[in-house]
Design a protein around this nucleic acid. Structure first.
Lengths: 173, 173
DNA sequence: GCAACCGATTGCAAAATGCAATCAGATTAG
DNA sequence: CTAATCTGATTGCATTTTGCAATCGGTTGC
């Protein structure tokens, strides 16, 4: 299951890699959601992916060199999926994609706050995030002693919006 | 035919817009290839889109607000398609996508030269290009008297690579 | 006239998707 | 020990999407 190679155009080839409904969603959940196991991806994605499609896409993404799979030492039959450098360098694209979607599409407020922070942070923040991902997934050292992780920061912002919406929905006693 | 709205995540919604094999290819040909008519898109795309799918995607992209259609005054039944601002702001995403594909995928040299120039030019070049697209498609004035168009520059680079490859393939007499 | 071209539409086979049920092995709770 | 649960998948099947070729009625150039 390699590329069809309809043409050698970079944009076309990129689309052949993740020009479908699920591949980028899976990568999004691994990158921003920190998910590493099959079940986490299966139950964790808000969009509700089916298990057969998840299995197929994981296989495909491995064959394309975007993911690797290893045994989880703590669990005999648990597999742990890791991002490769190829996948980690998608961060700027995901940031742009999120920024574009936030402007032009009916995104929900609590979910778009992360895209907003990522956009505001710009390339320096993306680099920091990619460095953290390399540390998590490739075992490279972190060269900057750098406070809270980007993922934690994004997640905290999300939680804050959820909490404030809950407050305004049910005014306190 | 609007969005499915599987979730309000910006990345998910963006994928619902162009997470298929053809929508971005069509936009690529309009943006970088300058194509405005059905037949130009049908015969011009290297990847060989089928006419029914092209018709379907054009309709969908119009419904999503990425394209508009108008009668070509010079030809009674000729339609001319225009990019909206929503589509024009995809330029940075396409630039990133091309840059990523150029690095990680087996792109052809003559087609990746444009992605390389676009990447090297960075945000200033993208802005200039978007300004030119606004002029072409939305009729806004060009605020910079700015030499050759970005599209012409990219096309010239492509032609130069094609020519040099032809030379080395058939050494001159 | 009449051939070529315009933006599509139709029919049909093949592939992808969505969904629910199920699997065998590993782990955990009682 | 045993039963329930959790692991990463696989299977079967109906629906949807895609790819491809043929075709359409109207327009244009000659």
């Amino acid at each position: 299951m390699s590329l069809d190679r309809r043409s050698g155009c970079p944009i076309n080839l990129s689309l052949e890699v993740f020009g479908d409904r699920w591949s980028l969603i899976i990568l999004r959940d691994m990158i921003f959601g920190g998910r590493r196991h099959f079940r986490e991806l299966l139950n964790g994605s808000m969009e509700g992916i089916a298990s057969n499609i998840l299995a197929d896409r994981l296989k495909r993404l491995m064959e394309l060199g975007m993911l690797t799979k290893a045994d989880d030492p703590s669990h005999k039959q648990k597999a742990i999926y890791s991002l490769t450098e190829m996948a980690i360098t998608l961060v700027p694209i995901l940031a742009h994609l999120g920024a574009w979607g936030r402007v032009w599409l009916p995104t929900s407020e609590e979910l778009s706050i992360r895209a907003e922070l990522l956009e505001k942070g710009g390339p320096p923040l993306w680099e920091k995030f990619m460095d953290e991902l390399r540390h998590e997934h490739l075992g490279t050292p972190l060269d900057t002693a750098s406070g809270p992780s980007v993922r934690a920061t994004l997640q905290a912002a999300y939680q804050a919006v959820v909490a404030s919406k809950a407050l305004s929905a049910s005014p306190a006693a």
